[in-house]
Write a protein that binds this DNA or RNA. Structure first.
Lengths: 144, 144
DNA sequence: TATTGTTATACTCTATAACTATA
DNA sequence: TATAGTTATAGAGTATAACAATA
């Protein structure tokens, strides 16, 4: 009998999906604790050390430009994000963290680490290093 | 200098979060290909081999009962899910996949595997087995 | 002409609060 | 009284289509 894909792979993929849901649950929870949606949390994380145009953000997140408009509108009203016209392209708009946004993103990040730590701590140090290496291999090179 | 948590752990947690976003992107995409939201996709996966009450589903997904009502309403209108009064509790409602729902869930699952396979295949077989074992350790025992 | 971003519109997801029916 | 589920309502996230301003 032919097998297209090994059983290990199917179980691995199940485990990846379940892990993804567990991690997302934590991110959603931390978001909720700070009145941030998952997407807003993500935007703030991305802008932590970058300043990006609306379109670049939309592309990175896989969203439409019009969706970004609403997302940034709401975060701007709360004083977390700012908009500024691009210096080099009259059509473009740069988005960045305000000081209040920067003040929020640090504690939020630490809270995520705090909540995910118990999961990670079920593994021994050597296993953690292996897991990290394997995940990083799967993810490929990071953003510049 | 004191360190509260090792650097490996912070990087591991970053890798876990990024992996989660990558997996979610695939699940969202497969959902979109089939006009299913992430949550509906998840409900269908859960009901693949179970029949659950509204409240049990809501608890499992971390949603309010009222949210489940709308979710199941829409899937029921599309003929994917069905409702039936519980045989043992006059207040309760069981939710289950219809034949059309069952027909959809198989190909959807295979499509998810197909799209996640390239990621997994960046690892060698021995590494995949390690990764699977580590993820399963972190996740703890599965649902009965 | 093509690209950047916004606006208008519509639908889904989600929660809270009030309600009905059953336990 | 407590629990299971629905309804009503409201806000956020999302996409599509049409638009204005700039390249």
């Amino acid at each position: 009998m032919l097998v297209e894909r090994s059983d290990v792979d199917a179980r691995l993929i199940d485990a990846l999906a379940q892990t993804a849901f567990s991690v997302m649950a934590v991110l959603n929870r931390v978001g909720a604790e700070n009145d941030l949606s998952l997407t807003q949390l993500r935007v703030m994380g991305i802008l932590r050390d970058r300043r990006l145009r609306m379109t670049a953000l939309a592309d990175y997140l896989g969203l439409e430009k019009s969706t970004m408009t609403g997302l940034v509108d709401r975060a701007e009203k709360r004083g977390l994000l700012g908009r500024a016209p691009s210096e080099t392209d009259g059509r473009a708009v740069d988005v960045f963290l305000t000081p209040a946004g920067e003040e929020l993103v640090g504690p939020v990040y630490r809270r995520v680490v705090e909540l995910l730590a118990p999961m990670v701590e079920t593994l021994r140090p050597a296993e953690r290093r292996q897991l990290q290496a394997h995940l990083e291999t799967m993810l490929g090179p990071p953003l510049p």
